[in-house]
Nucleic acid binder design. Structure first.
Length: 876
RNA sequence: GGGAGCAUAGCUCAGUUGGUUUAGAGCAUCUGCCUUACAAGCAGAGGGUCCGCGGUUCGAACCCGUGUGCUCCCA
C-alpha cells in the first residue's frame, strides 16, 4: 500500500470516530468492573465550541480514554444546561427578527418558541465535540430541563424551603417602569447622558449650620434616611453623630461616617437613599437605616414620598428644583455627564428598586462542603485552589436564586389573594397547604404562581447525580454504580458558582461527595494575554482549526501549552507543532513499512544483528522507563508533562536514535526479530499516545499490521523491566555520537567524509556493544582502541575517555584549541566551587553523608576531565 | 476597599521534603545540510543578576520578611 507523503487527518478522523461509535465503545452499562465516571460540565445550550471547551474536553477525554484502556468501565456523560439568561436573550432576538415582541405574547407562547429554538440549535456544541474525538456516551445525553430533571429541581426547592434554607428577602433589581417588570443585568443598556448635578444644602438639626450634598436625582431626597461622609474628611468631622433635616419634608436623619464615600466627588457628603440606589442600600444595611420606598411600580411617587404623590418621577424632578430653590436649599447646579441605564425593551430609564427575591441560606450547607475539601476527601488539582475555596466558604453569602425570566424552572411558590403564599410542587398541594391553615374564602383558581425562574446554577448543582436520576429515582442501580464520580474538569472561574455548590448538593441529597478529584484548567487567552471572549472576537474558529491542522494536532497544541491551573496563551505555533508531530509519526510508519519486504531470518541478516540487538534492548528499557514516568505524571494530573514525555520519547529516542541505530543499510535486509520488536514498540507507543491523540494512533496501530482489536479499547500491559545499565550505556552512546558530530561540524568535515576513530579508555567493555552503532552514526570506516598519537588529529573528550578522529582533511587547530580552553576554564571553575564546599568544615560536619560523598565524586570527575583536556591540548 | 495567585532563556513553562556535575525542556533565533521515512525534516550552536533588597542556613531559584510589577476573584 502506498502511504501519502504527509499525514492527512481529515478522512481518517471521520472514519475512526464513526467506527468507534458503531462498535459502541463509548457506551457504558454497570458491570463488575470498577467504574470511572466523568460528567461533562454542561456547556450552555446556546454555546458553540470555543478554546475553553476544547481544552476542557480534551483533558476529560484523555482521562476517560486512559481509564478505558486500564480496565475500568469508563462513562463520560454529555449534556447541556438551559442557560436561562443567554437562551432567553437568543430567543428574544429571534422573535424580534420575526417582528414579535416578548411582551406581546404570553409566557406559554414564548416557551413554545424557546423549545423550538433549543431543538434547532441546542445540539450544535455536542456535534462539535464529536469532531474533537470526545469519547462521550451519547446515549446518556442530558439536559437540565429534561422532565425528570426539572421535577428534581422543583423538589429540591420545596425541600430546602421546608428545611428553612430557602427564604424570601429584599434585593435591589432593575425595574422597567413602562413594562412593569424586572430586568436582568443583560437587558439594561447603559448610555451616556447629559445631566445636572444639583448641590443641595441640608440644615444641621438644632443649629444654623448646613451641610451640602450633590445629587443628580433631587426627587429622591424624599426617601433620604442618612447623610454619609468619609470619616477622615476634616470638613465634616464636627458633624459626626449629629442629625440633618431633609428639606421640604423636615425628616431628621443621622450623619454617618463611612470609608465608602470619596472625599473628592461632589462635596464629599453623600445623601443616602436606601430604597433607590444599590450602594445606598448596602450602606443602609450596614448602619441599620430606615428604607423608605418613595416610588410606585409605574415610576410615580408613592404615599411614602409625602409630596407629589402620583406624579411621574421626571415631572417631580422639574418641580422640586424650583421649590428647593425658593426655600434656599439650592447652592448651585452644574452640568454633568453620567451613565444611565435604559431598558432594552421599552427604552425607559431603569429604576433601581427593592424587590422580594428567593434566597438560599448558605452557612449550614457550606460546612460539610468545606470540610470535604479541607480534609482532602475531594482533592483539588492544583492544590493552591484550596485556599481560595476556604476563604470563600468561610465568608459565604446567601445565594439569590430567582431570576426575572421565563425560560427555566419556574419557582414553585403560589400566592393567595390575601397575600399569603405556599411553596409546593403543584398548585393543588399549595392550595391544600393554604387551606389547612384556615379555610380560605378563595378557590384554587385564585392562586397565582410566582412569575420568576430559578438561577441556572440552581439546576446544574444537581448535575453529578441527577444525570443518573439519583434524586428522581433514588438508589437506582446506575447512581449506585457511577456515583460519586471520579474527576471533574472545570475552569477555576466557576469554583464558587458551580464546584462548591455541587459539593453542597451532593452532601445534602446523596450524603456523599459528588467527585473525588477536581482538575482546574487554565483560562485560555490570546497572544496578548486577553481572555478569549465572544465580545472581543479573539477566539479562533475551532472547527476551522481542526480542518486546517487535524483534531489530534489541535488537542496536542492546546494541551502542550497547558500546565494545570495556569492560564494558557494560545498560539497557532503550538498547533503547528502538533501537526508536525503527526507527520513525524506518519513518516516513522512509512520507514517501518518499507522494511516489510526486506525481512530476513537467515544468516545474512546476522551481520546486522550486533548493533540492532543493543538498540532493541536499549529501547525496550527506555520505553518502559517513559511508560513509568507517564503513569506517575498522570496520577499527579500533570497531563501536559505526560504528553511532553511521550513527545520526546517518540521524536527523540525512537525516531532520532533508535530507528537510526536499528535501520538496515540502503536496500539491505532487516532482521526479523528487529522488525517485530520495532513494530511492537511502535504499537505500544501508539497505545500510550492514544488518549492524547486518538485518531492518528488508531490509524497507525491498524496500519502497522493486521490487528484483532481496536486500539481504542486495547488494555494496557503493566510496565516491564527497566535495565538501568543499558540505559546508561545508551546515554553514553548518545553523548559520544553528539560530541563526534559536533567535532565534525566545527572542523567542517562533511557527514559523508569517512573518518578513522581511536578510543582511549580505561574500560573498553561499555564500547564493545556499541561499536557497530558508533561506526554507523559517526560514519567511521574503522574504530580501534589503539592510541597512535599523530598530528592532524581531532581530540574529543567525553567523560573520562578520549576520542581521536583521524582524517585526510587539513585541520585548523586554533579553533579546536579555543574550544578546549573554554571547556577547561568551565571545568576548573566547577572544580573550584566544589572544592570550596569540601574545604568548608561546617559543610562536611553538617551535611548528610551522601551529599558529601556526592560532592567528592563530583570533585574526582572534574579532576579527571581537567586532566583529559590538558592532555588533549598538549597533543595539539 | 477585601482576598488570592504569579514573577526562571526572546516566548511558553518544568524545576517534587533546600544539596543530584556552577539552572532544564519545547517553540523561536543562528550555522551547516534537498544524507536512500520525514525541509511539516536532519545535524549542531548560542542564549539566564532564577524581579529588586534584606534575612535564616555550612549551603537558597526553592524557606522567611520587604519592595516592585502583572493577573484573577469578591464588592
Amino acid at each position: 500500500m502506498e502511504l501519502s507523503k504527509n499525514y492527512i487527518p481529515g478522512d481518517i478522523e471521520t472514519k475512526w470516530y464513526a467506527h468507534w461509535l458503531q462498535k459502541g465503545y463509548f457506551n457504558s452499562t454497570p458491570d463488575e468492573r470498577e467504574s470511572f465516571t466523568v460528567v461533562i460540565p454542561p456547556p450552555n445550550v446556546t454555546g458553540v465550541l470555543h478554546m475553553g471547551h476544547c481544552l476542557n474536553n480534551t483533558i476529560q477525554d484523555i482521562l476517560v480514554r486512559r481509564a478505558r484502556m486500564q480496565g475500568k468501565n469508563a462513562c463520560w456523560v454529555p449534556g447541556t444546561d438551559h442557560a436561562s439568561i443567554a437562551t432567553e436573550a437568543k430567543v428574544v432576538a429571534m422573535l424580534r427578527e420575526r417582528g414579535i415582541a416578548k411582551s406581546a405574547i404570553g409566557r406559554e407562547e414564548f416557551l413554545g418558541y424557546a423549545w423550538e429554538w433549543k431543538e434547532k440549535y441546542g445540539g450544535i456544541i455536542l456535534q462539535q465535540l464529536k469532531k474533537m474525538g470526545c469519547s462521550l456516551d451519547w446515549n446518556r445525553t442530558s439536559f437540565t430541563m429534561d422532565e425528570a430533571y426539572y421535577q428534581s429541581v422543583i423538589q429540591v426547592f420545596v425541600d430546602l424551603h421546608k428545611k428553612g434554607l430557602i427564604y424570601r428577602g429584599k434585593r435591589m433589581i432593575n425595574w422597567d417602569v413602562k413594562a412593569k417588570t424586572a430586568l436582568s443585568d443583560e437587558e439594561v443598556i447603559y448610555k451616556e447622558v447629559q445631566s445636572k448635578l444639583y448641590y443641595i444644602r441640608y440644615q444641621i438639626a438644632e443649629t444654623d449650620e448646613y451641610i451640602t450634598i450633590a445629587t443628580v436625582r433631587p426627587e429622591t431626597i424624599l426617601g433620604d434616611t442618612a447623610i454619609c461622609v468619609n470619616p477622615d474628611d476634616e470638613r465634616y468631622k464636627a458633624f459626626h453623630g449629629k442629625y440633618a433635616i431633609v428639606p421640604l419634608i423636615g425628616r431628621r436623619i443621622p450623619i454617618i461616617a463611612d470609608e465608602y464615600v470619596t472625599t473628592d466627588f461632589g462635596t464629599g457628603a453623600l445623601k443616602v437613599t436606601p430604597a433607590h440606589d444599590m450602594n445606598d442600600y448596602q450602606l443602609g444595611q450596614k448602619y441599620n437605616l430606615e428604607v423608605i420606598d418613595t416610588m410606585n411600580d409605574d415610576g410615580t411617587m408613592s404615599e411614602a414620598a409625602q409630596l407629589y404623590i402620583g406624579e411621574d418621577r421626571f415631572e417631580v424632578r422639574k418641580k422640586i428644583v424650583p421649590e428647593l430653590d425658593t426655600k434656599g436649599h439650592i447652592v448651585k447646579i452644574e452640568d454633568y455627564t453620567n451613565q444611565v441605564g435604559f431598558s432594552e425593551r421599552t427604552d425607559a430609564v431603569v429604576e433601581p428598586r427593592l424587590s422580594l427575591q428567593w434566597w438560599v441560606s448558605m452557612k449550614e450547607l457550606a460546612v460539610p462542603a468545606l470540610n470535604a475539601v479541607m480534609n482532602e476527601e475531594i482533592q483539588f488539582h492544583p492544590a493552591k485552589f484550596k485556599n481560595l475555596y476556604r476563604h470563600w466558604m468561610e465568608n459565604i453569602k446567601d445565594w439569590c436564586i430567582s431570576r426575572q425570566l421565563w425560560w427555566g424552572h419556574r419557582i414553585p411558590a403560589w400566592y393567595a389573594p390575601d397575600g399569603r403564599y405556599a411553596v409546593a410542587a403543584t398548585k393543588e398541594e399549595a392550595f391544600s397547604q393554604l387551606n389547612s391553615i384556615d379555610h380560605s374564602p378563595f378557590t384554587i383558581d385564585d392562586l397565582c404562581q410566582d412569575d420568576d425562574c430559578l438561577d441556572t446554577w440552581f439546576s446544574s448543582w444537581l448535575w453529578p447525580f441527577e444525570v443518573f436520576k439519583g434524586l428522581s429515582d433514588p438508589g437506582n442501580a446506575e447512581v449506585k454504580y457511577y456515583y460519586p464520580t471520579n474527576t471533574l474538569v472545570t475552569a477555576p472561574e466557576i469554583i464558587f458558582f458551580w464546584v462548591a455548590r455541587m459539593i453542597m448538593a451532593g452532601e445534602e441529597y446523596m450524603k456523599q461527595i459528588p467527585f473525588k478529584n477536581v482538575y482546574f484548567t487554565g483560562i485560555v487567552r490570546d497572544k496578548q494575554g486577553r481572555k478569549m471572549s465572544k465580545s472581543l472576537g479573539n477566539s479562533p474558529d475551532l472547527l476551522a482549526l481542526i480542518d486546517q491542522y487535524g483534531a489530534d494536532a489541535v488537542r496536542f497544541g492546546i494541551l502542550i501549552a497547558s500546565p494545570a491551573g495556569n492560564d494558557i496563551l494560545f498560539d497557532d505555533t503550538a498547533l503547528e507543532q502538533g501537526r508536525n508531530f503527526n507527520n513525524k509519526l506518519w513518516n516513522a510508519l512509512k520507514l517501518i513499512k518499507s522494511w516489510e519486504s526486506r525481512i530476513e531470518k537467515t544468516a545474512s541478516a546476522a551481520q546486522h544483528k550486533q548493533p540492532s540487538s543493543f538498540a532493541t534492548e536499549w529501547f525496550a528499557s527506555r520505553l518502559n522507563q517513559a511508560k513509568q514516568e507517564v503513569e506517575t505524571l498522570m496520577q499527579q494530573f500533570r497531563l501536559s508533562e505526560a504528553l511532553k514525555t511521550l513527545y520526546s520519547l517518540i521524536w527523540d529516542d525512537f525516531c532520532s536514535w533508535y530507528l537510526e541505530w536499528a535501520k538496515p543499510g540502503f536496500e539491505q535486509p532487516v532482521d526479523a526479530e528487529v522488525y517485530e520488536k520495532t513494530v511492537a514498540y511502535f504499537e505500544e507507543m501508539m497505545q500510550l499516545l492514544h488518549p492524547f491523540m486518538p485518531f492518528i494512533s488508531e490509524e497507525i496501530y491498524q496500519l502497522l499490521k493486521a490487528q484483532s482489536t481496536d486500539l481504542c479499547i486495547k488494555q494496557q500491559s503493566p510496565v516491564g523491566t527497566i535495565n538501568s545499565d543499558i540505559l546508561e550505556a545508551g546515554e553514553l552512546l548518545k553523548k559520544v555520537i553528539s560530541a563526534l558530530r559536533d567535532a565534525r561540524n566545527k572542523n567542517q568535515i562533511k557527514p559523508k567524509d569517512p573518518i578513522k576513530l581511536h578510543i582511549e579508555t580505561a574500560d573498553q567493555v561499555p564500547y564493545r556493544n556499541i561499536i557497530g552503532i558508533l561506526s554507523k552514526q559517526a560514519n567511521a570506516e574503522s574504530i580501534d582502541f589503539e592510541i597512535a598519537v599523530t598530528t592532524n588529529m581531532i581530540v574529543v573528550a567525553v567523560e573520562k575517555d578520549k576520542f581521536f578522529i583521524e582524517t585526510e582533511k587539513q585541520l585548523d587547530t586554533s579553533a579546536l584549541k579555543a574550544e578546549l580552553l573554554k571547556d577547561l576554564d568551565y571545568q576548573k571553575n566547577f572544580r573550584d566551587s566544589v572544592m570550596k564546599k569540601l574545604s568548608n568544615e561546617r559543610f562536611v560536619q553538617n551535611a548528610k553523608p551522601e551529599v558529601v560523598e556526592l560532592e567528592r565524586k563530583k570533585m574526582a570527575d572534574a579532576e579527571a576531565r581537567i586532566k583529559n583536556i590538558e592532555e588533549s591540548l598538549a597533543n595539539l
